[in-house]
Design a protein around this nucleic acid. Structure first.
Length: 425
RNA sequence: GGAGGGGUGGCAGAGCGGUUGAAUGCGGCGGUCUUGAAAACCGUUGAGCCGAAAGGUUCCGGGGGUUCGAAUCCCUCCCCCUCCGCCA
């Protein structure tokens, strides 16, 4: 959420950002409601001042046994008028607020302008796609042949876009979780968190999922709780309504959680395999940082995510999202895209964003300077990284002509020393 | 699920419908004393909004009501705690 004053003082900038993102939003309307609101507020506060003064006098006069009937009658009328004005102030406030919470964050100046993902720009590449010398299979065929991915049973137990992992498949999933958590906690300085997987409405609002993405989320019918679409939600909300000492920044947290997304409106997309699931595992990194440092912190965060792919020796590229592809709350975002041989393309496997003070304002997360002033801090988060898609990438990139899959060296200790997944005899 | 208790400033904890933005204690900050520190003592110490400013206004869990006037009375919702029951 943007500061009202900021919107007032930077009308053109905000309008430009709304245009760049291709969003429909009546900012003029917002400003009109705000203007009205302030006028009404001033009038009602003047009357309140009068009421306070006179009421105080009346208390004294009554003690002295004087007659105050006339004033009482007058003040009754003033009170009625105040009530009327307050109602109108509240209406205006509500109208402003409803628009305000829908204004997206302002993209950083370094973000390429463009209407959609075709304006995203590649920043760098790492690793060489392997030359197989045979036709690489898609991971879902490999996984079924290895008897480690069971798509049919996943659908039977739940519905489409749910998958069951078996044997070494399940083992690989668990190994990756541990491998990533160890990397981030032991080498990148993150504190490990295991948060609630169901969260309340306020938490979803704070990080920006609500009100915009309600259709994307699973909700519990009898309790006002949502299944998290990412650990970003509970972990960012750790410090909701808190003021942290400045010297405690930056605070770094990472968390493994399952994530749940309804994928509404993606019918027909990635229907096969692990790429787009309703339930998937992810290790997420979250940073609470000083505002002056957040864009530097974004570079570090992105490197932390890259380190995972580098250790696994998976070729990838880094892409900076254009204004049109940027998520609602983000000011700047890098996507990591891993090489998937079967599709001959790079596919998103991590997303690292700087939200500046956008989430902090919604969540009321501040820091206190040594001088005692409290200010909004900046929040960032990034996948470190999506587990299911990593499994897909590993199977495809490490497949052998005989249908087996080699375990990358750094993962071997996490697989009880196993170096290869073999097809069943 | 049943019974009860409670939500007030950074924390703890008072508060008769009128000068209470709120006693008191702790903590924080400043000072006196001291070679230094501790102790003691003195002073000081909430936030939002409107306004160019002066100043005004709001906030005692949320919302509504009674009243000239509500932290204080009424209604309602939410949350937390304790005990019992059930349960991983």
């Amino acid at each position: 959420m943007l500061d009202l004053k900021f919107i007032r003082d930077n009308e053109e900038l905000v309008k430009q950002s709304i245009r760049d993102r291709g969003v429909e939003l009546g900012l003029d309307q917002l400003l009109e409601f705000d203007q009205k609101r302030r006028e009404l507020l001033q009038e009602s506060e003047q009357l309140k001042n009068m009421r306070n003064t006179v009421s105080k006098e009346m208390g004294q006069l009554m003690k002295q046994g004087e007659d105050v009937a006339e004033r009482r009658e007058e003040m009754r009328r003033v009170s009625d008028r105040i009530k009327e004005l307050e109602d109108r102030v509240r209406e205006a406030e509500k109208a402003v607020y409803q628009l305000q919470i829908r204004v997206p964050n302002v993209p950083h100046e370094s973000v390429p302008r463009g209407a959609d993902e075709s304006y995203n720009q590649e920043v760098r590449r790492w690793g060489e796609p392997r030359d197989f010398g045979f036709e690489p299979l898609p991971h879902w065929e490999l996984g079924e042949a290895l008897d480690i991915l069971d798509f049919e049973r996943g659908v039977k137990i739940a519905e489409s876009r749910f998958t069951l992992l078996r044997g070494m498949g399940a083992r690989l999933e668990r190994a990756l979780i541990n491998f990533m958590l160890d990397l981030h906690t032991q080498e990148h300085g993150y504190t490990e968190i295991f948060p609630p997987i169901l969260v309340n409405e306020q938490s979803m609002f704070s990080t920006g999922q609500l009100p915009k993405l309600e259709a994307e989320m699973y909700r519990c019918r009898d309790d006002n709780l949502f299944l998290i679409p990412t650990a970003e939600v509970p972990v960012t909300n750790i410090h909701r309504d808190e003021t942290l000492p400045e010297q405690s920044l930056p605070r770094l947290y990472c968390a493994y959680t399952p994530c749940f997304r309804r994928e509404a409106g993606s019918y027909g997309k990635d229907t096969r395999g692990l790429i787009r699931q309703h339930q998937f595992n992810k290790v997420e990194m979250v940073r609470f940082v000083h505002p002056d440092r957040s864009f530097d912190e974004l570079e570090i965060l992105t490197e932390n995510a890259e380190a995972v792919l580098q250790r696994l020796n998976l070729p990838y590229r880094v892409v900076i999202l254009s204004t049109g592809d940027l998520s609602f709350a983000a000011s700047k975002c890098y996507d990591l895209e891993v090489w998937l041989p079967s599709s001959g393309a790079y596919r998103e496997i991590s997303s690292c964003s700087n939200f500046t003070d956008f989430q902090a304002r919604r969540a009321d997360i501040r820091y206190r300077t040594p001088e005692g002033k409290s200010q909004y801090l900046h929040t960032l988060n990034g996948s470190g990284i999506a587990i299911g898609r990593t499994v897909a990438a590993l199977l495809e990139n490490y497949q052998e002509p005989d249908g087996s899959v080699v375990i990358p060296e750094s993962l071997v200790p996490y697989m009880d020393g196993r170096e290869r997944i073999e097809p069943p005899a």
